[in-house]
């Protein structure tokens, strides 16, 4: 009988008490089906802190989410359900688009998956492949040194003094200025996919707003509204940073 080993960990993490990975053997032939990531992807690998992490789904069809992210309600405000869009010009994506982002932009290093939550949340579990850049940084004023350092780390280039010819060309519409602002050139800036705790979470929407204020092109921003709650609801792999 074919068996696959599934480590069911983070989805179980928030039930309280000591937390350990649980290894379950799922008999594929007995349960009758394998639960893939999507119709054409059984699983994928992503790099997380220099290690390969396999992203897959919990294979137990009876498994039910428990703990913090299984809760249906939170105090509102501040944890109110939010609109589908973080910003009218920024595309909202779901899990399948994240898989594609992981397979393409993350591997090509043209994109970053950003856990925009505060470090206290990040340390308790994140989506593999994510880096933690809290909304508290991303919503700082564009001229703030920390914001400037973050934008540079995303591949944006400060423009400095612009020559007269360049300025005139831009004013006359003779050069493409869709990816440049007065202060920044975002031509080589990475595509950012931002997420936080879920539909009730305002952290990544705030980060998106902050980046837009700094001039980050909306076509280089993506928002995963489902966040950690929906990610876990589908039994997708999560990881504790530093493990």
């Amino acid at each position: 009988m074919n068996k696959i080993i599934v480590l069911c960990g983070m989805a179980l993490l928030f039930g309280g008490g000591a937390v350990h990975a649980q290894e379950e053997e799922v008999a594929v032939e007995e349960s009758g089906f394998f639960i893939p990531l999507s119709e054409d992807k059984p699983y994928i690998h992503v790099l997380h802190e220099g290690k390969s992490v396999k992203i897959q789904r919990v294979q137990d069809p009876e498994y039910e989410l428990r703990g913090y992210f299984a809760r249906t309600g939170r105090k509102c405000p501040p944890f109110c359900l939010r609109p589908m869009e973080a910003h009218p010009e920024v595309e909202t994506v779901g899990e399948v688009e994240i898989f594609s982002f992981m397979e393409n932009e993350l591997r090509d290093e043209t994109g970053l998956l950003i856990d925009a939550r505060t470090p206290a949340w990040f340390q308790k579990g994140t989506i593999p492949g994510s880096i933690n850049v809290p909304f508290t940084v991303l919503s700082k004023p564009p001229a703030d040194p920390e914001m400037i350092a973050v934008l540079k780390s995303f591949g944006a280039k400060p423009r400095g003094e612009v020559g007269t010819v360049t300025r005139l060309m831009e004013e006359w519409g003779l050069t493409d200025t869709s990816l440049v602002t007065k202060d920044w050139d975002f031509s080589d800036a990475k595509k950012l996919l931002l997420w936080c705790n879920g539909p009730f979470c305002g952290q990544s929407p705030r980060a998106v707003e902050g980046l837009m204020e700094a001039g980050y092109p909306p076509e280089k921003l993506l928002y995963y509204r489902g966040g950690m709650q929906v990610w876990q609801l589908f039994g997708l792999t999560t990881i504790i940073p530093g493990t």
């Binding site: 480590l7 990975a21 579990g125 792999t237 493990t243």
Partner: peptide, 18 residues
């Protein structure tokens, strides 16, 4: 969420390191 205890021998991730 509470404090998360991590078993060093068997991390809590479903991830697999290759």
């Amino acid at each position: 969420i509470g404090h998360v205890e991590v078993d060093d021998q068997q991390g809590p991730s479903t991830g697999e390191v290759g």
